[in-house]
C-alpha cells in the first residue's frame, strides 16, 4: 500500500504546477478567452459527447456509404490509438474537436474571411460567407473541419427535422463547418450578462459535450479568469496540447492520463 498509493499521492496532485501562459493572439481586449481542459485520465470513450454535439449543433447524417467514404461529420470525435501487440497492448482515447488555435492555420488561407478569429479567441465560422474552397481543411493540422458534401435536408426526412436546434443553422451544401465551442450558448450567456451589466460567471455557460459527460472529462470556461475551473484545471502539470510543436497555440488543453 504505502509506496504504491503515496507515490500516487505525491504525483497525482495537480497543485504547484505553472499557470498556463495565455497564448498570444491579436484582438484581445475582450474579457473572455474561452478555453477547454480535457482530462484524458477520466475519459472512458463512452461517446456521449459525440452524440451530444450532433444533437446540439444539428450535424448532418451522412449515411453508411458516405460515412465509409470519409464524409461523416463529427465535430467531436473519440480518437482511439492502439499501442503494441496482444497481450502487450494498450489503447488510448482522445476526444478531439476544433482546438480553436490562437494562431489558427485555417484562418489566413480563407479567401473570404468565412473562418476567422473572434475577439474571444474562438475560431469562428460564418457559413454564409464560405464558398467551399476547402483550403482551410487542408491547412488544419488536426483535421477537424468538415465539408458539407451534400444537402443536409437529404437525410432529414420528416419528422426528423423537428429534433433540430433552432439556435444553430443547418449548414447548406458546399460550406465548411466545425466545432464552434457551442458559440450560440456563449452568445446567449454573454448577452444575458451584458443586459445585467456584468460579465459571464464561471459555469454560467458550458458546451454540450462538456455537459453530457458524466465522467466530467471536459471543463469549459474563461481562461482570462484565474479563478475559473478551467484555468485551475489547465494549471496542472499533466497539461499538454495536441501537436504543440506546430505553434498553433490551441486553447484546448489536454491532461495526460495514467499515474502522474
Amino acid at each position: 500500500m504505502a509506496d504504491l498509493l503515496t507515490a500516487t499521492h505525491a504525483a497525482v496532485s495537480d497543485k504547484g504546477a505553472h499557470a498556463p501562459a495565455a497564448a498570444p493572439y491579436e484582438g484581445a481586449g475582450s474579457p473572455y478567452r474561452w478555453g477547454m481542459a480535457v482530462d484524458l485520465d477520466r475519459c472512458t470513450g463512452c461517446g456521449a459527447c459525440v452524440v451530444a454535439c450532433h444533437a446540439e449543433n444539428n450535424l448532418p447524417i451522412a449515411g453508411p456509404i458516405d460515412t465509409d467514404e470519409g464524409r461523416s461529420v463529427d465535430w467531436m470525435r473519440i480518437e482511439r490509438y492502439w499501442e503494441g501487440h496482444y497481450p502487450e497492448i494498450t489503447a488510448h482515447f482522445v476526444p478531439v474537436m476544433c482546438q480553436h488555435c490562437s494562431n489558427a492555420p485555417c484562418e489566413p488561407v480563407c479567401p473570404v474571411f468565412a473562418t476567422y478569429h473572434t475577439p474571444e479567441g474562438l475560431n469562428g465560422m460564418v457559413y454564409n460567407r464560405c464558398i467551399g474552397t476547402q483550403y482551410c481543411q487542408n491547412n488544419d493540422p488536426y483535421n477537424v473541419r468538415f465539408f458539407n458534401w451534400f444537402e443536409a435536408a437529404l437525410n432529414f426526412p420528416e419528422p426528423l427535422p423537428n429534433q433540430l436546434n433552432p439556435d444553430v443553422t443547418v449548414r447548406s451544401r458546399g460550406v465548411m463547418e466545425k466545432c464552434t465551442f457551442c458559440v450560440h450558448r456563449i452568445r446567449e450567456a454573454s448577452s444575458d450578462a451584458k443586459a445585467e451589466g456584468r460579465t459571464v460567471e464561471d459555469g454560467e455557460v458550458t458546451t454540450a459535450c462538456a455537459q453530457s459527460c458524466s465522467a466530467n472529462v471536459i471543463t469549459f470556461g474563461n481562461l482570462l479568469d484565474p479563478h475559473s475551473k478551467v484555468s485551475k484545471a489547465v494549471a496542472s502539470a499533466r497539461r499538454f496540447r495536441l501537436l504543440e510543436g506546430l505553434g498553433t497555440e490551441p486553447v484546448v488543453y489536454y491532461l495526460k492520463g495514467g499515474q502522474a
Binding site: 456521449a48 451530444a52 420528416e158 429534433q163 455537459q211 458524466s214
Partner: peptide, 18 residues
C-alpha cells in the same frame, strides 16, 4: 449525475424517427 449517455442523448431522434 448531470451527464447522459450516448443513447439518452438520442432520445429526441427516437421520438422524431421518420
Amino acid at each position: 449525475r448531470g451527464g447522459l449517455c450516448a443513447l439518452g442523448q438520442a432520445g429526441v431522434q427516437h421520438q422524431y424517427h421518420p
